[in-house]
């Protein structure tokens, strides 16, 4: 028998899962789109992970992180549910114990984590605005009719990136349309966009933070070689992008789950019916928006209530 641990990072755009062993080696990993349905995505993810998995492996701990961590943690009965900042730092430090700065750009949010001697000392996250995140890049790629996978390669072809406003995506988009109509080459526009992502990140999330090497760049956008190039150029430092950079959150939470293991999980969730129902409670003037979660038609939990009123079916 081999004890293993499952870490799941459910982001706004993609869902990531890894199985690690006692020594933090990755046994299996999976990366799929969330498609705004975290429950369905996690069911699919677990089926994929179970496929061809060594029969000797027993899952002794499950951790969830990412924006849907609470919901999925409840469904899987996870033993650790933690925020993505801690999870990312733990995952990254496992591979790069010397790391001092983590840059992370995901689908909807971006963060910077500063580390000193293996302890997080500071972090920042984007606030209301999703400017300069993966969602913006992919919507612009769609507008330009480019596959997001080819985006980085195309950016590298350019020698003369166009200047695009780096503060706000609304202005960035109108800049982009304007430059396209003037007749700039598509690779220059794509390169300009990649550069604007970097500038936006450094001006918003990275504002006032001392970025010290070694720097590790991760999150979905780290797969974009154009963005990596401009980070290197602007920070004048080497940027480390791990081949598993998109999985760091999931690995981190799996490691945290390992340290708290206590039971055996069977991972048979495919046939269990999970359902969520949103409702507005009108019992007091707060009108709380309540989300009720059903497992096989039995209410197991509810989120969103401001008071302790018992919520029934």
């Amino acid at each position: 028998m081999k004890n293993c641990y499952l870490g799941i990072d459910i982001g706004s755009i993609s869902t990531k899962g890894v199985i690690i062993d006692e020594n933090n080696n990755i046994i299996k990993s999976e990366y799929i789109w969330t498609e705004a349905n975290p429950i369905k995505a996690v069911k699919k993810l677990i089926e994929n992970l179970k496929n061809n998995l060594d029969k000797n492996i027993v899952i002794k701990g499950i951790g969830t992180t990412g924006s849907a961590r609470k919901l999925i943690g409840l469904l899987l009965d996870a033993n650790v549910i933690k925020n993505e900042i801690t999870a990312h730092a733990v995952g990254t430090l496992n591979f790069y114990p010397e790391c001092k700065t983590i840059l992370e750009i995901g689908g909807q949010d971006s963060k910077i984590i500063l580390i000193n001697n293996g302890i997080i000392t500071d972090y920042a996250m984007n606030t209301l605005c999703a400017a300069g995140t993966g969602a913006f890049l992919s919507s612009q790629a769609k507008r330009l009719k480019i596959k997001i996978e080819d985006f980085g390669k195309l950016a590298l072809k350019s020698n003369n990136p166009v200047k695009i406003a780096a503060r706000c995506t609304v202005f960035a988009e109108s800049d982009l349309v304007h430059k396209a109509q003037l007749g700039y080459k598509i690779e220059d526009i794509v390169a300009g966009l990649s550069k604007s992502i970097v500038l936006n990140y450094l001006n918003n999330v990275g504002k006032g933070k001392k970025i010290k090497p070694p720097i590790v760049f991760q999150g979905g956008v780290s797969k974009n070689i154009g963005v990596v190039k401009y980070f290197k150029e602007i920070l004048k430092e080497d940027i480390i992008v791990d081949s598993n950079s998109h999985l760091m959150g999931a690995i981190g939470i799996a490691i945290l789950a390992k340290n708290k293991n206590n039971k055996i999980y069977d991972l048979n969730i495919k046939d269990i019916k999970f359902e969520t129902k949103g409702m507005e409670c009108n019992k007091c003037p707060n009108n709380c928006e309540i989300l009720k979660i059903y497992k096989d038609e039995k209410l197991i939990d509810a989120f969103g209530s401001k008071c302790n009123r018992e919520i029934k079916n």
């Binding site: 925020n83 900042i85 801690t86 972090y123 996250m125």
Partner: peptide, 9 residues
Amino acid sequence: TRIESFIDI
């Protein structure tokens, strides 16, 4: 998310 990670730190 912010409070939890701050307290972790």
